[in-house]
Nucleic acid binder design. Sequence first.
DNA 1: ACGATCGTACGAGGATTTACGTACAGTCGT
DNA 2: ACGACTGTACGTAAATCCTCGTACGATCGT
Lengths: 114, 114
Amino acid sequence: MAFRHPDRDQIRVEDVLSALGNGVRLSVVRILDAGGEHNCTSVLNTLGITAKSTMTHHWRVLRDSGVIRQQPSGRENLLVLRREDLDARYPGLLDAILSGARTDAATQHPDSAA
Amino acid sequence: MAFRHPDRDQIRVEDVLSALGNGVRLSVVRILDAGGEHNCTSVLNTLGITAKSTMTHHWRVLRDSGVIRQQPSGRENLLVLRREDLDARYPGLLDAILSGARTDAATQHPDSAA
DNA sequence: ACGATCGTACGAGGATTTACGTACAGTCGT
DNA sequence: ACGACTGTACGTAAATCCTCGTACGATCGT
């Protein structure tokens, strides 16, 4: 199963933004950015409960928009953030989004303040 | 007609991204960023043909996500990009998005190349 | 007061998105 | 070969989004 990934210069910022304008997918990117090797199940477990078929949909959106790369390996499907490509085409975008997501998380969970 | 705008610290990056993950709204932000005073009709004219009621929908999305501010003035509705708030909360995000949009535009319209 | 202008509100349609369960295709270990 | 495991494909249902036409409220100029 080989997936179709857009080339670096086929990536559209509009697609990246709409891909990341979704809580589940933004969380996925945060997980991938944190490092480590991930396959679909490991991300799914980190997120909590989500149907596998639902995640398949999100993988497609992230893949088609050029945010992640999906690499079949044995019976698994390795997931990697396309950081090099994104940084090359949209300098600073990914970092701004990721630190923005951290800002929001800090605002919402103000470290045990009710 | 006073509109409800989110406070700076109520803005969510996820909402900003999904607001800007749409061609029409991304174009609006590009127009506002270019400077000058704008009301709904002037933006609408710059964009070409779009029903006023359709734009009203986009204004709401942009307003609710904290991207623009809508300021009634006489019978007009002045539109301003909330750059200060966005830059304060998400440093570099807006600039990265705007220059990304310019990158895409340059890729798609390679200056009269068919 | 009157007509023109600005923009929203409402309602409708069609398309797209998100989510799920089920079924299936490939791979691994034994 | 067999069962366990990984992840996709497909169909479906609910929700949301995008667009438009029409109607309305408010303001301006005369």
